[in-house]
Design a binder for these strands. Structure first.
Lengths: 199, 199
DNA sequence: TAAAACATAACGACCGGTCGGTTTTTGGAG
DNA sequence: CTCCAAAAACCGACCGGTCGTTATGTTTTA
């Protein structure tokens, strides 16, 4: 292995180890030594590749949110109609809900530290705003194509984002594997049709 | 001051100090010494009243969730119609959203540790389920009184709970004071009316 | 041979919890 | 009301251990 491959491999090992440990134990409760042990590298290697423990966390946030964003964009762009797209999106979330031990824990860790650490907050807010914009754009598209009522796009976008986030939270608390993708789908169906009785 | 008052006062001081510190710095980053300093008591007093740092956290969870539950129940029982009740509830959340530096931080801390610590999980899940039931009952009532469509109460209840939780999350990230109570109201209006265009 | 990549041991700060001692309150006895 | 001993409440120095980071040395690649 040449230096480039070796470096990349080590870095990858560290990030993978950190991902699962942060997700399971939390950022504060996970020690650098623990990460190193699981990654099969030494502390020297760790601090050769990362400036600090925090730097690893920030790197993880970056890759994770980018993955999520790409997935989201793919789904919304490919959908024929907007209501269909929303329902598909809910289905797409299923795999994420399923590895909850992995992602849910990281998701929570992310939110918590975004509230205290300025760097984490910055790394979180930006993609989060883009999520919101994606939803808002989707709503606008739906109104234009005539499949959605004339709701306020900003409010509806925020509604969708909150609903998704709330489902993440709920799913993280449950121990048994509920079918969260389907539950989210059914919720979105209700949202599309409305709850209030018409006369 | 007699012993009863003295005890109560000290305990109160400790819990208040812990509340604001946990909310701002997080559970792990807040030291017992720090809590004691802010509360104006010594470590001896702290460990006289609480078995451990965790015990304080559990006590806080208990009082906080009870407050929230009482508020929620009051609103839903007093409402004339269910759609009105839902909108009022959203308005009632406004004061909670406003002291976000206090409550939002604690909310996040609660969720994070519920995911790792079994005791915290137990203390969280029970009231959380009751929230869900309250929402579900509300939906059933709405269907019975004829103000709501014939949606599945369990799904709709979960939807409302997720939406509320998601709003808490969002509000905790924002630095500027958005009017989250009103935003939640508008979201619920959309939810009541539905988003899909009828033909 | 130089530079990159990694290993190991040790440091220093911190933190939850303990423990022996001190102050304050209590509830009678005189 | 006064005194006093016991219990309750509180104090604060200290311990054992952990953890992030660093300094120094070693191996691997260029």
């Amino acid at each position: 292995m040449n230096n480039l491959q070796r470096s990349a491999q080590t870095k990858k090992s560290i990030m993978e180890a950190a991902t699962s440990l942060f997700a399971r134990e939390g950022y504060d409760s996970t020690g650098v030594a623990e990460i190193c042990e699981r990654a099969g590298v030494s502390k020297g290697a760790f601090y050769y590749h990362f400036e600090s423990k925090e730097a690893v966390f920030l790197a993880l946030i970056d890759t994770w949110l980018n993955t999520l964003e790409t997935t989201l964009n793919d789904v919304t762009y490919q959908a024929k109609s907007v209501p269909d797209g929303l329902l598909e999106m809910a289905g797409m979330m299923q795999p994420i809900f399923e590895n909850n031990q992995f992602f849910m824990g990281l998701f929570l860790e992310l939110w918590t530290h975004a509230n205290r650490n300025e760097k984490v907050r910055q790394a979180t807010i930006a993609p989060y705003r883009r999520f919101e914009e994606t939803f808002t754009r989707l709503i606008k598209r739906g109104i234009e194509e005539g499949t959605l009522e004339n709701v306020e796009p900003e409010i509806a976008g925020q509604l969708l984002l909150s609903l998704s986030s709330g489902f993440f939270l709920q799913a993280s608390l449950e121990t048994e594997q509920g079918n969260w993708g389907k539950k989210l789908q059914e919720s979105i169906e209700i949202l599309l049709n409305g709850m209030k009785r018409r006369n």
